[in-house]
Design a binder for these strands. Structure first.
Length: 928
RNA sequence: AGCCGAUUAGCUCAAUUGGAAGAGCAUUUGAUUUACAUUCAAAAGGUUAAAGGUUCAAAUCCUUUAUCGGCUACCA
């Protein structure tokens, strides 16, 4: 068989995905077992404008590992993909393009035409992220791909909106909201990003008091808002001002008179202890204004210029120009007391970074009282969702819920789900699922629909059930037209008698980042419980953040992002996936190409191990019966099969706990250390020499058996690696002799052959052979000691050594059984076994476990000083450990209270150390 | 301001309920009749940020401090 000397990922990546997808391997229908247990994940829908970043790559890797692992276990597995319409982002993108190419604004086009353009844009460019997801090898079911503005999902949005409105959980009202003057829309609290500015100013303004010469000084960071002041407030306990409560202020620059009120909200310690109150432009002032029945005076337009109410001097001025002018005018009037430097944090637009303006505005809100209780109750009564890692996310999630405020859901955009509310000429509102229903309610009055759309997160909040055809007629729309031909047709499609919603909701696990726990995770919990009376998911895996090599967050503005696609190009998809999966669950980690390089090397190692097996595969085939050993099997075989099964058991155990990095570690060391470095080396002679000729004392049948065994072990290892490294393992698995769909898990018997449908090795407890592992350990120790002596005594590798080993009878037998292998790997010519050590003085010596000793005669080669130093170093090491152990064992408390097996373990170790020390010391004596 | 996390070998990170501190990279030394130099072998490298406490036993639990990071709220 022709096989390249090193792994080139490109070819595998280009061919296998397409074939898997075409054969329907990703769809749950590939599973032929009618009783299969479902396993499902919904992808956190990336923005349709987005392109893949490391965060996605990390999350997708974890989801794909879980999906492939469960699929190989015979679960009816669905990983549902899709994208989010991403209101603001997408609208911005198209707006920019429009301006650049046609010098037009969205208003030039009008709503209908503009929206059409966005759809065109989506069709043209929106597929990028989905192509990238394919590139990652993600085994998502494309036949169920969803978009948040699909017909059925939009219908779900309307249904939820109307239903919540009817129950009074959605309301329309005037509140202080976060207004972005650039995007000209309101934002929810979660879309506000605080930014600290060191160059802030605190301006002290003097307000004259009516019928008095006194002035009251207020401090403000936003002087322009004074034009909308409707009171000044002081603390009722503040003796400085108690006589002023109830007095009237003559508000400068306006012709208004405003009262001085007393309110506990005011902190007497801060500033002057007197606060200007602008109910229409500050959330606290708004609340205070309600308590004191103050007028709400809006002085700004939606682009943060001042309006007519601000007065003719200010009308039309930008807020910052108006601010300067207010200060200037106060200065002219002699009412500017002072300006202090003041570090301030300003609310900014998450997307465009513009400083937001708190402004009184009429918007739609979701009342969160009941919603919060839904989520809190689930957490309290069922510990749901189960976060992984649990600390700190459960606590953070719960704390946040406890302090939750109402959610602003309207957005002044055109791209999104337009709010299903209509107004008649008198301003009466009619909320309805369709225009017709609204007309009926309004008795055919002249209706106009609300201009606003819903927050993107409103529709994403329904993702865990709207994607499964909720509120749709069953058996329709859940599967799209045209995709049926693409799906594997030899396998029986299940008759869709139950809907996807019944089968796949709740999903098993959600994998996402910390940043959207509140924005998305919490809302899915509430909405799903509320509307389908189910949990959206059982578990939530919160991934860490991928940082750059300096520990900084990757960001576009900093330009320090690492593009996953570049890494794929350079090192291959599988190496990248393994690197991501190898990061510890939930912890941030710094990206280093060196780590991927290491995994690229690992991929090459797997390639070459397979290459070796294939070059010696005449007469061999993948045959799992070859892994069942009889009593006469060699220690090496018993050992590797024990290790294989132990690895399988532990990998499954770790994956169950979402400890991906531990699983990766186990597989890496099993494959590289156990399988390649030891097993292949140990059995090399038995299986190699190209054709099936007999070696000394070996029959062709023995050789075929040995070849079958190693190739079968390899096959099992490839299966275990498959969820992490799908392309490489598929490429190699298909090359193994006699692989076919006969090797599939029984749920996939009729599917075209692929490793992804074989069964994931679970490991067999009865195949674990601790005795063989211990015996092999002794062989490994012996060889390691020989290598150590060789290296430390600077003995040429070509020098064939004679090994004198003293050991008890059992151990002698182990060494004798493996004599040929030991001689080969240790590059020795002779192995002399005896009860007591009998070697010339000019020997290098080492103490082995279980009282065994090694001596290598080095007549003429030995440097006695060097040998003495070497032995002394070893004695010193043992003594440090020995004295710690004997200290511990002479501690009564330890002996009494520690678990008995622990005490025994230490005692045995101490005896071992003592015997080795004794042996080494005797050797030292002999050298003096 | 509050809450949370992190601090382990030169670097990047592990360490399952408290029970002999481990990998990979980098370093040093040696190896090329080989499945793989994207390789193999060997060595060296630690007062687990600091101080105190609980315990027979602490990287792990508690207290304090320092540095870094995150989140939430608010500062008129």
């Amino acid at each position: 068989m022709e096989i390249e000397k090193s792994y080139n990922p490109k070819e595998a990546e280009e061919t296998h995905y397409e074939r898997w997808e075409k054969n329907g391997c990703f769809a749950p229908e590939i599973n032929e077992n009618p009783d299969a247990v479902p396993f499902s994940i919904v992808i956190p829908p990336p923005n349709v404008t987005g392109s893949l970043h490391m965060g996605h790559a990390l999350q997708h890797t974890i989801m794909d590992v879980l999906t492939r692992w469960k699929r190989m276990q015979g679960f009816k597995t669905l990983w549902l993909p899709g994208t989010d319409h991403a209101g603001i982002s997408t609208q911005l993108q198209v707006t920019k393009k429009l301006l650049k190419e046609e010098k037009k604004t969205r208003w030039d086009l009008g709503r209908e035409e503009f929206t059409k353009r966005v759809w065109d844009w989506k069709r043209q460019y929106g597929g990028e992220i989905t192509r990238q997801i394919r590139r990652e090898g993600a085994s998502v079911d494309w036949s169920r791909e969803r978009f948040t503005m699909d017909k059925s999902l939009s219908k779900a949005v309307r249904e939820v909106f109307c239903s919540l409105f009817e129950q009074g959980w959605i309301y329309r009202g005037k509140r202080i909201v976060n207004w972005c003057p650039k995007d000209k829309t309101v934002l929810s609290d979660l879309e506000v990003k605080e930014e600290t500015r060191k160059d802030g100013k605190l301006v002290y303004l003097q307000y004259p008091i009516k019928n008095s010469t006194r002035k009251l000084t207020v401090a403000t960071t936003r002087p322009e808002t004074m034009l909308g002041d409707s009171a000044v407030a002081v603390n009722p306990k503040d003796v400085r001002y108690s006589d002023l409560i109830g007095e009237i202020i003559l508000l400068p620059l306006t012709n208004r008179e405003i009262p001085i009120v007393a309110d506990e909200y005011v902190d007497a310690e801060f500033g002057t202890g007197a606060v200007k109150i602008t109910p229409a432009h500050d959330p606290n002032d708004y609340e205070l204004g309600l308590r004191h029945n103050l007028p709400q005076i809006v002085v700004m337009n939606d682009d943060a210029t001042m309006n007519a109410v601000a007065g003719t001097d200010f009308n039309g001025l930008d807020r910052y120009i108006a601010r300067a002018k207010v200060i200037e005018k106060f200065d002219e009037l002699g009412l500017l007391e002072k300006i202090d430097d003041y570090e301030i944090s300003l609310p900014c637009c998450e997307r465009c970074k513009t400083v937001l303006e708190p402004i009184l505005s009429e918007q739609w809100f979701v009342k969160m009282d009941e919603m919060r209780d839904i989520a809190l109750n689930l957490m309290k009564t069922e510990n749901s969702p189960r976060f992984s890692p649990e600390v700190p996310h459960t606590k953070v999630y719960t704390n946040w819920l406890e302090n939750l405020k109402d959610w602003t859901i309207s957005r002044q955009l055109w791209w999104g789900h337009q709010i299903p509310a209509w107004y008649d000429d008198l301003g009466n509102v009619f909320v309805a699922r369709t225009f017709e229903q609204a007309k009926a309610k309004a008795q055919n009055a002249n209706l106009t629909q609300d201009e606003d759309v819903l927050d993107t997160w409103f529709s994403s909040g329904l993702w865990a059930f709207s994607t499964f055809g909720w509120n749709e007629k069953r058996d329709t729309e859940t599967r799209r037209n045209g995709d049926k031909e693409n799906v594997f047709s030899a396998g029986k499609f299940l008759k869709v008698s139950e809907s996807d919603l019944d089968v796949f909701c709740p999903t098993d696990v959600l994998v996402t980042g910390r940043d959207i726990i509140f924005l998305w995770v919490s809302r899915m919990v509430m909405m799903t419980k509320k509307f389908v009376d189910k949990k959206p998911f059982n578990d939530v895996i919160i991934t860490g953040t991928v940082l750059d090599k300096n520990g900084q967050r990757m960001s576009k503005t900093k330009g320090n992002g690492v593009d996953p696609l570049d890494v794929f190009e350079k090192y291959g998809v599988d190496a990248t996936r393994l690197t991501l999966a190898g990061s510890s669950t939930g912890a941030d980690f710094r990206w280093r190409d060196e780590n991927v390089e290491q995994n690229r090397n690992f991929a090459n190692k797997i390639w070459n191990a397979t290459r070796f097996c294939l070059l010696n595969s005449e007469g061999a085939k993948v045959d799992h019966s070859s892994l069942i050993l009889d009593e006469n099997a060699s220690i090496a075989d018993k050992w590797i099969i024990s290790r294989l099964n132990k690895t399988a058991i532990n990998v499954n155990k770790e994956l169950e706990k979402y400890q991906f990095h531990t699983a990766v570690n186990l597989l890496y060391h099993f494959f590289w250390d156990d399988f390649c470095d030891w097993y292949i080396e140990l059995v090399k002679d038995e299986i190699s020499s190209g054709n099936l000729q007999e070696n000394e004392g070996q029959t062709t049948n023995d050789k075929g058996q040995a070849r079958t065994r190693i190739i079968t072990i390899l096959e099992v290892a490839l299966r275990m690696l498959h969820p992490f490294m799908p392309f490489l393992t598929e490429e190699l698995w298909l090359k193994l002799p006699y692989t076919s769909s006969n090797l599939h898990h029984e749920a996939y018997k009729n599917a075209p052959q692929t490793i992804m449908l074989t069964s994931f090795p679970l490991g067999d407890l009865s195949a674990i052979d601790e005795k063989a592992e211990a015996e092999m350990q002794a062989v490994i120790e012996l060889i390691s000691k020989v290598r150590n002596i060789r290296a430390e005594m600077s003995i040429k590798p070509s020098e064939r050594l004679s090994l004198h080993v003293s050991a008890d009878g059992d151990l002698q037998k182990v060494f004798a059984d493996n004599k040929a292998r030991i001689l080969k790997i240790a590059r020795a010519s002779n192995l002399i076994l005896s009860e007591t050590l009998n070697a010339p003085k000019a020997s290098a010596k080492a103490a082995l476990s279980r009282g065994a000793e090694l001596a290598i005669p080095l007549e003429g080669l030995i440097d006695f000083d060097k040998e003495r130093t070497r032995l002394e170093n070893q004695v010193a090491k043992l003594e440090i450990e020995g004295s710690r152990l004997s200290g511990q064992l002479s501690n009564e408390g330890f002996v009494k209270q520690a678990p008995a097996e622990k005490v025994v373990e230490l005692q045995e170790r101490l005896i071992e150390i003592e015997s080795q020390t004794k042996a080494l010391n005797l050797n030292l004596e002999a050298l003096k």
